[in-house]
Design a protein around this nucleic acid. Structure first.
Length: 490
RNA sequence: CGGGGUGUAGCGUAGCCCGGUAUCGCGCCACAUUUGGGAUGUGGAGGUCGUAGGUUCGAAUCCUGCCACCCCGACCA
């Protein structure tokens, strides 16, 4: 397997191969950019699901499931929403196939649907159509529901992990009695995402709000977390939207308030997707492959035995079984790779490629000395340590690795975060080291679009922690009261 | 949909200009020697040369149509 510099997303393809492959759908030219998630990749997604789902439950949410198909008429009820998604919808028009007489299978034109069904690109419309029947009184609120699902967006260009035609995600959809409560929910879920990204994925993120131009179709306000990849490009890692009363009005969802008045319900929606796996790869990987943070890794410790005879193997097995038990008590996931079809060196390389944080190698020599070889993936260092107290040692090491991976990503971001005060400086940084560029902007969509046309950089967000600061727009020279973050993005 | 490029074994490729039935590497299978960083040797299996047609005694190679895929742009979690 070739090894290369991982400076561009395309170069990550060899690590992607451990997790996903492009779906082979060549018979139908229009369907491309779908992915097959391999077992190891799916195990990572399951870890994400488990951790996020727990947080959702802790914050009062419940899971539910809504249909894959959305009648076209639902979809068109919210004007901005339909405009935003209309150009990327898969549409079901028929419900039956038939044999055309020559043995060829064709669509049965007699089985044309009265009303076309849209394969959900997101579920706001069908969920709000359902909520109408659930809500009558303020006593029915809030509704705090999440759905784990797949969605389809027929993008003109796809890219494995970052923009596949079909992807897995979770979408939270909540209904509230007041604007304040809905905004608080929007912000709370953004915090859940940010905390997850930083503490679990070890990917530092900027919390911010989107400009009007980059806002979700149908939202009054879009909050986001923005991460920085190792090639200097930004990646939107999660969004949380304050939808106002737009969907309640479109789907006629009203409730009677404490005061006895009939009012429209306030809404939020928020989601993260399998794109997070792309973020994980591009934030931490090196030339040896994936680097998984211990809190997320499906396998935290891999043990590789080195032996020549059956007697040696049996002796090592006894030791490993005991170690495995001790680690499992500490909730550490272990893989004992005692395959006799591969040699140790091959296994070392393979588990490094898969990003397993800690490797224990133990052979006859170690068994004599009462030692093992302990190797860490993040620093690629190894040392010989005592078998005694090994489980505790590993437990601590996993924490150290988690922190180190985060710190490394944080340092990288700090060195790729530049304040600029002129357009020339802006372009120079953008073409040079890249990363986030903090500068003044006049607040108009027109300026934003012109900067994008000229430089391909977009406003990633207006950071939540941006200070009030008088300045002038680097592009137009007009006054500005705070800095925004620009970057080239995926 | 515009601009560029590519289709040969599971993967990556040579051959094409100048026509004679396909090269090499990885991987796979068997055996032997190996096993503390991606083993070595010997033997073996595996190919509608994207597809349809044309030229020719003969096409991976020349000609025409079609199809697919990749990269760039519009779009985007």
């Amino acid at each position: 397997m070739s090894k290369g510099i991982t400076s561009r997303a395309e170069d990550y393809s060899q690590w992607y191969n451990e997790l996903v492959i492009k779906a082979d759908l060549a018979e139908n030219s229009a369907v491309r950019g779908c992915m097959v998630i391999k077992p190891y990749g799916y195990a990572i997604w399951e870890r994400m699901q488990a951790i996020l789902d727990k947080r959702f439950k802790e914050t009062g949410h419940s899971n539910a499931y809504f249909p894959l198909f959305i009648p076209k008429s639902f979809f068109s009820k919210e004007a901005a929403h339909v405009e935003g998604f209309a150009t990327e919808c898969a549409v079901v028009t028929h419900y039956r196939l038939k044999n055309d007489g020559t043995g060829k299978i064709v669509v049965d034109e007699d089985a044309k649907l009265e009303e076309e069904l849209i394969v959900r690109p997101t579920s706001e419309t069908i969920i709000w159509n359902t909520y109408r029947g659930w809500i009558e009184s303020y006593r029915d609120l809030p509704i705090l529901v999440n759905q784990w699902a797949n969605v389809v967006r027929w993008e003109m260009r796809t890219r494995l992990f970052l923009r596949t035609a079909e992807f897995l995600w979770q979408e939270g959809h909540t209904a509230h009695a007041t604007s304040e409560e809905a905004i608080a929910e929007t912000e709370r879920m953004l915090d859940v995402y940010a905390e997850f990204a930083e503490n679990i994925l070890a990917v530092p993120v900027v919390r911010g709000r989107k400009t009007e131009n980059e806002r979700f179709a149908g939202a009054l306000d879009t909050y986001c977390i923005e991460a920085l990849m190792q090639d200097g490009k930004a990646l939107q890692a999660g969004t949380s939207h304050f939808l106002g009363q737009n969907f309640a009005k479109a789907f006629d969802v009203k409730f009677t308030s404490k005061e006895g008045k009939l009012e429209h319900v306030w809404a939020t929606s928020w989601g993260v997707s399998t794109r997070l796996m792309g973020a994980l790869i591009m934030a931490h990987s090196d030339d040896q492959g994936l680097v998984l943070p211990p809190k997320l890794a499906p396998i935290q410790v891999v043990i590789v035995p080195i032996f020549k005879t059956e007697e040696e193997k049996a002796q090592i097995d006894t030791f490993v079984n005991q170690l495995t038990d001790e680690l499992k008590i500490k909730n550490i996931s272990v893989k004992y790779d005692d395959r006799d079809t591969q040699r140790p060196g091959f296994k070392f390389a393979e588990w490094e490629l898969k990003g397993v944080p800690v490797r224990v190698a133990v052979g006859a020599r170690d068994m004599q000395n009462g030692t093992v070889e302990l190797a860490r993936r993040d620093t690629q260092t190894k040392e010989t340590v005592a078998q005694e107290g090994l489980a505790e040692n590993i437990e601590q090491l996993l924490q150290v690795i988690q922190e180190n991976i985060y710190q490394k990503a944080l340092d990288f971001r700090a060195s790729h975060f530049t304040e600029v005060n002129s357009y020339d400086e802006f372009k120079e940084v953008l073409e040079g080291k890249g990363g986030f560029i903090s500068c003044h902007w006049d607040g108009t969509t027109e300026t934003e679009k012109r900067v994008k046309e000229e430089t391909k950089a977009t406003i990633r967000c207006i950071p939540l922690d941006a200070k009030e600061e008088e300045g002038v727009c680097i592009f137009t020279g007009k006054p500005s009261s705070r800095r925004v973050l620009f970057a080239k993005a995926y």
